[in-house]
């Protein structure tokens, strides 16, 4: 669960606090787990929620406006991603601006749709798509730089 917190928060020290809160919540609410679905999935949901709450408290869920100049770049294939490992990918994700990172995590990693993300974060589907696109552009740019 620690990687989940790190991916959302983007800072290891702050992620430790979120991890702590997440475990406290998990232990406090153990009796609410009714067996619907896997325990890992239930626990994962707690930590994702805790991470998003922490970001919201810090007002870090504002959608990023960076990389306007990067618009128009084409998406590369997956080849660049295949060549990196866990640590490099985590480092890249942690460097993402908060808005990009949140949408990227929810869409690409957690698997939520843009509509669901929009409902969660109070943004439009278009904004969610835009943020995700720009996040991918940003990642691709960084992957190219690292090659």
């Amino acid at each position: 669960m620690f990687p989940i917190c790190i991916r959302y928060i983007g800072d290891r020290v702050q992620a430790e606090d979120v991890l702590q809160d997440g475990f406290i919540t998990l232990f406090e609410k153990l009796d609410s787990y009714k067996g619907d679905g896997s325990f890992e999935g239930w626990a994962r949901r707690i930590f994702v929620t805790t991470s998003l709450m922490a970001l919201r408290k810090k007002d870090a869920l504002k959608m990023s406006e960076e990389l306007d100049t990067a618009r128009g770049m084409k998406a590369e294939t997956v080849s660049q991603v295949q060549n990196i490992g866990y640590k490099e990918l985590m480092a890249l994700i942690m460097q993402l601006p908060p808005g990009f990172r949140t949408v990227f995590n929810l869409y690409s990693i957690e698997g939520y749709s843009h509509k669901e993300i929009g409902d969660m974060l109070g943004i439009s589907e278009t904004t969610s798509r835009t943020q995700l696109s720009r996040a991918r552009i940003w990642l691709q740019k960084k992957l190219k730089e690292n090659d």
């Binding site: 430790e16 991890l19 997956v78 490992g85 990693i109």
Partner: peptide, 25 residues
């Protein structure tokens, strides 16, 4: 799929949790 690839990379990762986190819990 790029997303599936990243997901598989991330799910295999582990992070060491500092001891003070458990004390805090």
């Amino acid at each position: 799929d790029q997303d599936l690839l990243m997901r598989s990379i991330l799910e295999g990762g582990q992070e060491e949790v500092p001891a003070h986190v458990w004390e805090g819990v």
